[in-house]
Design a protein around this nucleic acid. Structure first.
Length: 430
RNA sequence: UCCUCAGUAGCUCAAUUGGCAGAGCAUCCGGCUGUUAACCGGAGGGUUGCAGGUUCGAGUCCUGCCUGAGGAGCCA
């Protein structure tokens, strides 16, 4: 007899099968036991009645500790009383490993308790749903770029410098020389785009920011496309197409999981290009009219983002940020040197920024000026400046935060649940 | 780094003006042949985060520290 996965059970009604799994709940009425099993593909109930099995098997089923691992042989039967409509009638059960008292119970727990047991918390239905959505997001991203002829190029994680200043870098030792964990793969993607035209990377990035908000972690995955000959308008199209493809991919494959998460699916079904656009100037005026008094030239704070998001019920763009708010490599607008060809995408419902990007400065002299103005050491950036010495072209791209995107799509209160093993301020166990 | 809040049984939380430290769940024992976070009966379970102080008396008030949470700045 071959072992099947629990999600295949419905195709074997009337047959005898073998399954393996973990006991996520156990109930008993004395002479009939209900063993609820999960194996990662589905959750199914096994029934063990005293009349139908040997005394030996019945005794083994009695009082199974939660999260014990078992192998079960039984007959598949349709029964309206079973959750899901299909159940397994136990013929034989082998306990592979009897679990100790499982610390995570069916009722509520605090955040601290759960995060200390993240390795076990992953087994809970909500966590399973979130991480399956995350997997679907990653697949949608890969499909999207693959379908458009992009080459995936992996950026290094150990780097000699950073594109965005050095104050928030994790430093380590590289055989006697300082090295930093990557904050972004973008500079490397520009080199790759000059080789392959359309590229993207997807990998972990690190920021040693002592941030404690629902949208920050120290280690997060970022998806960074970079395209040669792409202009500001093209960059906007690419971003809204990508975000829309991600959402429709999840809606196509993970409805059941969104249901578990009690996500308002109607809000996701509205996500279609084109997204509304507002310039930084317009946003600044709009916020001033609402009573937010922040200086022109600064970035949008959390309160400002929230106030702006109230205006839209879909993702939206803020474009053309001031030079003072953005990184050294961003290209200035031709009609206004105070502004850059930059874009941010904000998710609706208060989830904040999920994308940040720009056109890149392709002029060598202007780039050298910017490096100096940002007080960055030029030596480690020599290779990057080389890209302007050997066939510079207009180029644009952006970074999409994977965790924030998953958080928004799942409707989570905190980004930590969108990540299998989150690295947070003062917490990197387990 | 700054601001605010919290820490009591394994977990989630109560405890009136400073006056006997309690409940639900979990665990263990018993009951129940269709349970759906099963239910019913019983039992065990406490250095009230740590150190000091005020008081006849502190979970409760005061001081310091530790840990965590929410937020700000910064960002995806």
């Amino acid at each position: 007899m071959t072992r099947i996965w629990l999600d295949e059970l419905g195709r074997h009604v009337g047959e005898e099968v073998e399954v393996g799994g973990w006991v996520f709940n156990f109930r008993s009425s004395g002479k009939i036991h209900f063993i609820q099993l999960r194996d990662g593909t589905a959750r199914v109930q096994a029934v063990c009645a005293e009349d139908n099995v040997s005394d030996d098997v019945f005794a083994r089923c009695d009082g199974l500790a939660l999260e014990s691992s078992v192998r079960v042989v039984g007959a598949v039967r349709e029964d309206a009383r079973a959750p899901g409509g299909v159940e397994l009638v136990v013929k034989d059960l082998e306990i592979l490993s009897a679990a100790l008292e499982f610390p995570i119970q069916k009722k509520e727990h605090g955040v601290d308790f759960l995060l200390d047991r993240r390795h076990l918390w992953l087994r809970s239905p909500r966590q399973e749903a979130v991480l399956k959505v995350r997997s679907a997001v990653e697949r949608a991203i890969a499909d999207f770029f693959d379908g458009r002829g992009f080459v995936r190029v992996d950026a290094p994680i150990l780097t000699p410098t950073s594109p965005e200043g050095t104050t928030t870098l994790f430093q380590t030792d590289y055989f006697g020389e300082p090295a930093f964990l990557s904050q972004s793969g973008q500079l490397y993607m520009e080199a790759a785009a000059a080789a392959f035209g359309k590229v993207y990377c997807a990998g972990p990035t690190f920021r040693a920011e002592k941030s404690k908000t629902r949208r920050h972690v120290m280690e997060f995955w970022m998806i960074e496309p970079e395209v040669a000959f792409l202009d500001h308008e093209g960059n906007i199209s690419l971003a809204e197409d990508l975000v829309s493809a991600i959402v429709s991919g999840v809606l196509a494959r993970r409805r059941a999981e969104l249901d578990v998460l009690e996500r308002d699916v109607a809000a996701l079904e509205r996500v279609k290009p084109p997204f509304p656009r507002v310039t930084y100037d317009e946003a600044h005026k709009l916020l001033a009219a609402k009573g937010y008094d922040f200086p022109w030239g600064g970035d949008l704070g959390g309160d400002e983002q929230t106030a702006l998001a109230e205006e839209y019920d879909t993702p939206f763009f803020v474009e053309k940020f001031p030079v003072s708010a953005k990184a050294f490599y961003m290209k200035r607008c031709e009609d206004d040197a105070r502004l850059t060809y930059s874009i941010d995408v904000f998710a609706p419902e208060g989830y904040g920024e999920i994308v940040g990007g720009s056109c890149r400065e392709e002029d060598l002299d202007k780039l050298i000026e910017n490096v100096a103005a940002h007080k960055l050491p030029p030596e480690p950036l020599e290779w990057y400046l080389d890209l302007r010495r050997y066939g510079a072209v207009p180029m644009a791209g952006f970074g999409l935060g994977l965790g924030r995107t998953v958080m928004w799509i799942c409707g989570l209160k905190h980004i930590r649940e969108a990540i299998p093993f989150p690295r947070m301020l003062n917490r990197f166990y387990p």
